[in-house]
């Protein structure tokens, strides 16, 4: 592999993993606080899967540059993280969390479907593995969007509020990272442009069926993964505190 392709792949894997880690941590904030016990368990399961996916992405990076996944997750500060801003936003209410998880799951499902034939075999193998878990997620979160959208006036209003806030942020999922075109040209990762079309088509139909209006003005749309919201600093402070306090602390 040419060195510039390798560098781009390392950066892409980092972005994929960072999204999953931060989203997983946001989801874990509901543990013990879910609206009902079963949903508490379901969300904990979903984000535990996301954390597993992050482990796989960091693992692929490790094969390329020998970096330690735990170091990356627990000892990098916000400037080093390459997650998108959508996953950083505070968890908000249940509608906010479910909508974000839905928008993300749909993106992830479509990305995985397109990436399963990657020319980079270790990536294709990881994708096959992750796909088997991901289908349970989308099934769950799209049902929640429908339920809240068509539920009561209040649940619809809250979901609509979440959508107005998140729609612009979600577009960042489809902004290529610097050098991504090299990976696309080699068939290592899918082109985000046609994926975005499919995502828009699926999400628009589902959101409208759930009784929501797509924002006319998409609002703020982040473009670079080198920049973050202020929320990333506080979430990392919490997430990394144990590891930074005692690096030898047992994983479980």
């Amino acid at each position: 592999m040419r060195s510039e392709v390798r560098e781009a792949l390392i950066a892409k894997l980092t972005a994929l993993a960072d999204d999953e880690v931060i989203l997983a941590h946001r989801g874990s904030e509901w543990t013990g606080h879910g609206p009902i016990l079963e949903e508490d368990i379901a969300l904990a399961n979903i984000v535990q899967d996301e954390l597993g996916h992050a482990t796989l992405w960091y693992g692929l990076r490790q094969q390329l540059d020998g970096s330690d996944p735990d170091q990356l997750a627990f000892f990098r500060d916000a400037y080093g993280y390459r997650c998108c801003e959508l996953v950083e936003l505070p968890k908000g209410d249940w509608a906010f969390t479910m909508l974000r998880q839905y928008l993300y799951d749909l993106y992830e499902a479509l990305w995985l479907e397109a990436a399963q034939h990657s020319t980079y075999k270790p990536l294709a193998e990881a994708v096959q593995k992750i796909m088997r878990e991901e289908r349970f997620h989308l099934q769950h979160t799209q049902a929640w969007v429908e339920r809240l959208g068509q539920g009561t006036d209040e649940s619809n209003r809250r979901l609509q509020q979440a959508l107005d806030m998140q729609w612009g942020y979600a577009q960042q999922l489809f902004v290529p990272i610097p050098g991504e075109e090299l990976l696309v040209a080699e068939g290592i990762v899918p082109d985000l442009l046609p994926l975005r079309e499919r995502w828009l088509e699926h999400s628009t139909r589902h959101l409208q069926n759930a009784g929501l209006k797509l924002p006319i003005n998409p609002g703020y749309q982040p473009t670079s993964r080198a920049y973050h919201t202020e929320h990333l600093w506080s979430i990392l402070a919490e997430m990394q505190s144990t590891a930074r306090w005692d690096a030898e602390a047992k994983v479980w």
């Binding site: 079963e38 399961n45 899967d49 349970f136 769950h140």
Partner: peptide
Amino acid sequence: VKNTFGPTLCKAI
């Protein structure tokens, strides 16, 4: 089905 997710990742309720 009561819950697609259960006490462990591999089980539903």
